[in-house]
Design a binder for these strands. Structure first.
Lengths: 196, 196
DNA sequence: TCAAATCATTGACATTTATCAAGAGTCGTT
DNA sequence: AACGACTCTTGATAAATGTCAATGATTTGA
């Protein structure tokens, strides 16, 4: 369906324009380099050991990035939703095997750009490099906060932190997923919710 | 002492050249924008609530970046040593109050560059922007690993992880500091070391 | 080199959190 | 609408980790 694809591209274009503060040169060329992707709940974009070939832009839906520990439990590093960018950054940059999984936890509409094109745009189009750097800075900053909450807060305070800082995730996601994000078991999650 | 300052600048220049893969243009101009700094063990570069005005390059010594939790305990986000860059990235970029402390845990020789100069170089000198991006990617990647180890490993496995991945820190730092980095109490650290 | 401060270790105990199991509820798919 | 799969909750118990206190060792700065 051509019109749906165009709708998706428009979301991307507006996202880029908003973040850059102006309409960049070659916006059409850049957005046309993206490929649309519709995925069912449960589909994987990446598995442990695979090389991540794309950066994904989320038009609609929610993705979970996680690892699996020695007991087979999922530990979620991050959830990504509408108008966010997802990839395994170092695996992507160096084209090396990932240690993470990326999975759709809702039906998703995505746009993806291939490594080769990404690299070309990064060096050829300053506005593209600039957007990328902004995303990188924001991602880094989020992850820094995440480390600090994980090491300095107990389970109950981590739940409170999430409710205050990412309330939309709390309502959108299952308790089990939230628990895997906070580094606690689903049972503990249930019990602590009673103490709020 | 002029010659010591020159020695410090040379370390910086070699670091930049190595990471860029070539000697960049305007290297002298860039390195002369840095100010040398000698600090005693225990000195603070930044405290909670302050605005970080500089990016620091470590010529010699070790820095601790940490937060203080509600019980007054330090939680270390990261240690930085020779030839690494340190700042509170989002606070620096947006010139907003930091939530972290940055402290010398050894006598330190540092070079620092001021926010205004950093911004100017970032937009004027492509090689400078490129180095900055590399540092950002590496820092982000490290922090991602850190989140995954904190959520997916128990205390003993986190110690093992540190020994395998950052063995120099294990020998260089006190157990107390290591414990605050791993998110465990000093007593637990002592006990688990016996189980290795 | 010495005195003061900090650190590491150990024991006893408290607290937090995980694990296992079972039943009720919910959701998605057909 | 019904089936099956998954999720949530609760209880009982176990394991992991924290806290407090005391002692000896180590380090640091004067």
């Amino acid at each position: 369906m051509k019109s749906k694809f165009n709708d998706m591209l428009q979301v991307l274009q507006e996202h880029i324009t908003k973040h850059l503060g102006k309409t960049p040169e070659r916006l059409e060329e850049v957005s046309n380099a993206f490929e649309p992707l519709q995925l069912k709940r449960g589909a994987f974009l990446l598995r442990d050991g695979e090389i991540c070939k794309h950066v994904y832009f989320i038009v609609e839906g929610c993705l979970q990035v996680f690892v699996i520990d020695k007991n087979g439990n999922e530990s979620t590093r991050e959830f990504y939703t509408e108008e966010q960018w997802v990839t395994d950054i170092m695996g992507f940059k160096n084209q090396q095997a990932s240690k993470e999984y990326i999975k759709c936890i809702e039906p998703c509409k995505l746009l993806r750009i291939h490594y080769d094109v990404f690299q070309r745009f990064s060096s050829d189009i300053p506005a593209f490099a600039q957007i990328y750097q902004q995303i990188l800075e924001l991602s880094y900053s989020n992850t820094v906060y995440r480390v600090n909450t994980l090491t300095s807060l107990d389970a109950l305070d981590r739940i409170k932190w999430l409710m205050e800082n990412k309330p939309k995730l709390m309502t959108r996601l299952s308790s089990k997923l939230i628990a895997s994000y906070l580094g606690i078991s689903p049972e503990t999650m249930t019990r602590l919710k009673g103490k709020l």
